[in-house]
Write a protein that binds this DNA or RNA. Sequence first.
DNA 1: GATGAATGAGGTTTCATTCAT
DNA 2: TATGAATGAAACCTCATTCAT
Lengths: 224, 224, 224, 224
Amino acid sequence: MTLADQRAQPARRARRADAERNRAAIIEAAGAVFAEQGGAVDVREIARRSGVGMGTLYRHFPTKEDLLATVLVQEFTSWLITTHQAARETEDPWQALTDFFEQSLTQLARNRALIEAYIATGAPSCECARRRDAVYDDLRTRCQDAGLLRPDVTTADLVLLITSLSQAVRTTADTQPGQWRRILHISLDGLSSRNTAPLPEPTSDTPNATAPATSPPEGSGKGE
Amino acid sequence: MTLADQRAQPARRARRADAERNRAAIIEAAGAVFAEQGGAVDVREIARRSGVGMGTLYRHFPTKEDLLATVLVQEFTSWLITTHQAARETEDPWQALTDFFEQSLTQLARNRALIEAYIATGAPSCECARRRDAVYDDLRTRCQDAGLLRPDVTTADLVLLITSLSQAVRTTADTQPGQWRRILHISLDGLSSRNTAPLPEPTSDTPNATAPATSPPEGSGKGE
Amino acid sequence: MTLADQRAQPARRARRADAERNRAAIIEAAGAVFAEQGGAVDVREIARRSGVGMGTLYRHFPTKEDLLATVLVQEFTSWLITTHQAARETEDPWQALTDFFEQSLTQLARNRALIEAYIATGAPSCECARRRDAVYDDLRTRCQDAGLLRPDVTTADLVLLITSLSQAVRTTADTQPGQWRRILHISLDGLSSRNTAPLPEPTSDTPNATAPATSPPEGSGKGE
Amino acid sequence: MTLADQRAQPARRARRADAERNRAAIIEAAGAVFAEQGGAVDVREIARRSGVGMGTLYRHFPTKEDLLATVLVQEFTSWLITTHQAARETEDPWQALTDFFEQSLTQLARNRALIEAYIATGAPSCECARRRDAVYDDLRTRCQDAGLLRPDVTTADLVLLITSLSQAVRTTADTQPGQWRRILHISLDGLSSRNTAPLPEPTSDTPNATAPATSPPEGSGKGE
DNA sequence: GATGAATGAGGTTTCATTCAT
DNA sequence: TATGAATGAAACCTCATTCAT
């Protein structure tokens, strides 16, 4: 009746636009809720906040998991692009790497579900992982070409490092915000090409008993 | 024996033998289940696995939380003692620190719930945190006295570092077992007193904009 | 399908518009179950009888207590209105009071949970108590203005009297239905303005030692 | 067999004395707990307070119900005897009745489980009911013989009246202690032989429509 | 297409009673 | 015989997902 007034043709469009708007609203609300409370929230909270019914939500996302994945992929991707862009514009390769880590972790610190996903698999999806690896590859190569980064550090190492640091962010989020920067600082120092001892074999599951895991500086030390 | 000692027997009344056995069975089963599946398992699974009824379980542990806490505290403590003992017997302070990290993480790698607890608060209980800090203090002091460890690294830093590395262990447990050792290696290199740049203030929540977060080697560059 | 038949009337395939009907069904079933077995019944029994799932029940009433309260308030209110209406239409004030007691107790006699609530607090809710007091006030005033009711009888006395008589109803419900009317009769006689001895102070917690609790007729008696 | 041993072996006696002491302790503890919290308490609370184990408790009383019944019967009986004794020693029959009601209710006011039992069946057991009826018979007869009590009041009426008044006691126990005495006063006035209208038939379940339930005094009234 | 009520398995916890020590 | 740990059937409540309107 009242809907019939809508000009005949654009009815479809209007409807699709509506659907699209709904989808966006859901994603936005879900993003906020997931970021605040993690992935274990009640779906109703999201439906409520986005102003749609449960059915609508489940029409767009057949599963809570799907919704979560979609949200995370989107956030992850946009974040990756932004951060990579910034890194690209930084001339000094090391600074670029440093900034990238810093910004990545700052971003993660704000999103509980994203950290959870990071923690679980390192990325919200395979596609995301691929993109992420590409970015890391770029940063790593630049630094290694400049001789600033340990030559045997791999992309996987960097990924794992961020993953692990994201944990530090999460842990200290409430009580010691900012403490994670000290750990980051330490890790970055460890990445520097100043450290010449080769890293352990990536495939090995047992510690290298013969060689010391790290090489403490021979000539340095307060006691000497 | 060792387990009995941990509970600090007040000798008020001798617990019935089978009660103690049941308690042990519950703790063991819960330990296994929690380690495998994390803290979100059904309590019934634990009751089933330990061969006791629900009531028995709840007689010993009034709450699922209590059970989890008990199990984790026990595992954490025994692990801490063992690992610290090994570190004490190592003469070289740096090696002691290295081994401690190595063994801590190896242990954590096997226990999902323990990692969860570590992630959440850094330890399963305040008492555990205290003990943990004592151990870390010891290791840290030895290394710093020997001039091997950055002088401004704090106990909290070490704790956070392990927490964050435990994440790396967890992430790579299934697909890349052992890769976490590379990250550990990097982090330990970063801890070395060879790195002289001061760490950022622990209280600061914003990156230090003036000083570079890390000091890349001065004389290196792409052209070299 | 078979379930649908059990509920006789409504097609069980209704949903949205039937939310209200479901709610009514729940209230009705709960009313019956509570009336029969009191407030300590299993919620599942109510869900089963009303033909809805547990979730539906808990959607409408977040707590068993809520359900009970709703049911009782509803029954109490409807009963109060009906009974008061009848009393209003009776011209003779004393007859109105008498009928009101009679009908109130008849109603209570049929509802175990209602009696429980009455016993506990005199009414299922504060609002109910307010309404109830208003009705009693009305009845009492009419009777006292007509000089038929002891002048020092208060509304609280009447409430307490009904509460206590409801107990008599309950006690004799199964074995001696109707016996409570004799007690009611006696109580009403005691309320009559024929009895001139003042009632004990409402605040006093100890029996009035000086004056006899009741005034037996001096000059009457079989032996005289 | 077991009986034969009773002579020779004091060990048995000692044991039996122990058992008897335990039994007494259980009954005493149960009495206190039931009085305080009603019949729905956890059996463990009783075991704890009486200082015996669950097994011992269940050895003496195969069922919680049995324990409750035993306790109540005992309390009821001792109370009945005491109160009756006091009534017997009172010369004035009406005063005896009055005091009996007063004391009965005061006693009931202190015992939650007893009220529950009273409410449920009028007495904790058949035997108790018999004894109680005997006492009431005595009191009633004395009063009726003296022409002080309505001649058609039966023992059952008195019992029901107390039962119902016990409810009033319970209701006002916390907030309006003592208010029940006003109701009692009213009821006793209604019992007086001053009221000449016959009570309704005990067997009738329907109100007597022809005759008014009570007879308000024709000639009295404020307005006249 | 949108809505939100309905579903019901699954979670934790309690307690009368039994039974091994 | 006394003990109190063990039992396990309910009890209450949650929430991801479906489905009639």
